[in-house]
Computed example of a mutant assay.
Amino acid sequence: MGYRSFVAVGDSFTEGLNDPLPDAPPPAPGEVVRYRGWADRVAERLARLDPDFRYANLAVRGKLIDQIVADQVPVAVEMKPDLISFCAGGNDLIRPGTDPDQMAKKLAAAVRTLRATGADVVLFTGTDPRDTPIMRQLRGKFAIFFMHVRSIADLYGCHLVDMWSMQGLRDWRAWSDDRLHMNAEGHRLVAARVLHVLGLPGEDDWRKTWPPRERVDPRAKRREDMQWLKEHFGPWIGRRLRGTSSGDGLAPKRPELGPLSPAPTS
């Protein structure tokens, strides 16, 4: 009826950006903001099904697939959980010159290693980037990689969470201002989809239909796009040019497989 242990592996998506912890105090100067995210939400549900449930989240924002495979996958194998989620490749795909076919080979090798432990493994396709400025130009590369993910899931008997088909995630109300990370509502939808794929009871429906929005003036939309380029995409390019990452020096938020504290109230 459930799982006794769950290890989440990946990047900022699995770490939980930008789903703030309810009632968390403002961070002190220089302190790293910690987030909740879909994986914590799934773990909270699994913990309610089994009082002995344990959870670890090894994901770190900004990590590339090679870093995730080298640093997180061996730790997950050593922990021997019942359930492992593995989502990687998003940060690679938005870099120039990356080959989705080569990325898929690395993913497949890691999945073989994880499945060899006997754990159930959850894989993810990403969302369709066609509505995102600049990112839409990479849509073909995204689609190739996500088709590989579907094939790998089928080949190795993994659970697949297909976010490309989640129409609720096509609305910007499920995303934070940076247009790269989901907000609390987006993470809630993904958590609901994961539980559905696992055949476990959940409290939310991932098939969300948003209420209609007022028509946006095209000029206002262009201003929003320019503001996004300045505040979010520009700094991201700057980090790439400097060879730095938002996750440099950060440790996983839950590096040990252990019990959960009481779940947040919202």
Rank of each mutant, 00 (worst) to 15 (best):
D171H: 11
A174F: 04
G126S: 15
I144S: 14
T127I: 15
Q167L: 14
G168H: 08
L160N: 07
R188N: 06
Y156V: 00
Q167R: 14
F124D: 02
Q167I: 09
G202W: 05
F145S: 00
T127A: 15
H159Y: 13
G157H: 06
I134T: 02
R188S: 11
R188L: 12
F124Q: 02
P201E: 06
D171Q: 05
G140V: 09
N183D: 12
T132D: 00
E185I: 14
G168T: 05
D128P: 02
F142P: 01
W164T: 02
A192K: 06
E203S: 15
L200R: 13
D177C: 01
T127Y: 13
D131L: 15
L169V: 04
L189Y: 08
K141T: 14
M182L: 15
A153H: 01
L180P: 00
M135C: 01
M166Y: 11
M166N: 11
V149Q: 06
H181D: 01
A143S: 12
Q167S: 14
A191T: 11
F142Y: 11
D162I: 06
R150W: 05
L155M: 09
L198R: 11
V194F: 10
I134V: 15
R188M: 09
A174T: 05
M163Y: 04
F124T: 01
T125L: 05
H159T: 10
W164R: 08
P133L: 02
W175P: 02
H196V: 03
R130A: 12
H196M: 08
A191W: 12
H181E: 01
G202L: 08
N183G: 12
G202E: 07
R173W: 10
